[in-house]
């Protein structure tokens, strides 16, 4: 299965990554980014539009589009979703940071956005702060941080996350509750280190 524009075989990249290809990771990011963008842009002729994004997570859709499910091992799926979730995190946080910078008037910004992409009430959480907290969690519990990435930025359900990680839903649920509790506590304490 091939990314339509680039001709890159994502399945192959995943398999290659599994065998230790150093190049595979950044190429994966490239393709996944491209596909996410296409899905987001609703550029897929004849595809369901609009509501799709609310019901199905972007990365899930990208996965179905990009990966030949008959050829990959669960570990490959974990790689894929890990990459995609990380990518989403970077895109969102980066965007939020730039908006901050623009408001502060610090330096020339490369890109400017409308201030109301998403209503503040719906956005719910300050992504820049959340990113800092997640980075701290990563420093002592990398697995938990990945889980948060998958669940939150990747939009996976408990069951999907369990499948991707090769774990049980019960374990994922416990770990998720723990990480979420910790992050919530840190968030409400304010962004200190």
């Amino acid at each position: 299965m091939t990314a339509p524009d680039t001709g890159i075989d994502v399945t192959q990249l995943l398999l290659a990554w599994n065998t230790g290809e150093t190049d595979a990771r950044d190429q994966l990011m490239m393709v996944v980014y491209e596909e996410l963008r296409r899905i987001a842009g609703g550029q897929l002729a004849g595809e369901k539009q609009g509501h799709t994004l609310q019901t199905t997570a972007l990365v899930n859709e990208a996965y179905l589009r990009l990966v030949d499910q008959t050829r990959v091992h669960w570990r490959n799926r974990a790689h894929f979703f890990g990459i995609a979730a990380q990518l989403m995190r970077r895109i969102l946080v980066d965007h939020a940071r730039r908006r901050y910078a623009a408001k502060r008037g610090g330096g020339v910004t490369l890109l400017e956005f409308e201030d109301s992409i998403t209503p503040r009430s719906k956005r719910g959480v300050d992504l820049v702060v959340l990113d800092d907290i997640l980075t701290r969690l990563e420093s002592f519990d990398a697995d938990a941080a990945r889980l948060v990435e998958l669940r939150y930025f990747g939009g996976l359900t408990i069951e999907e996350t369990a499948e991707v990680l090769g774990s049980s839903p019960a374990t994922v649920k416990r770990e998720w509750a723990t990480a979420r509790a910790w992050m919530h506590r840190e968030l409400t304490r304010g962004p200190k280190t």
């Binding site: 997570a57 989403m88 969102l92 992409i117």
Partner: peptide
Amino acid sequence: PPGAAAAEV
């Protein structure tokens, strides 16, 4: 999950 926001971004 910020799927919609991500899509816009």
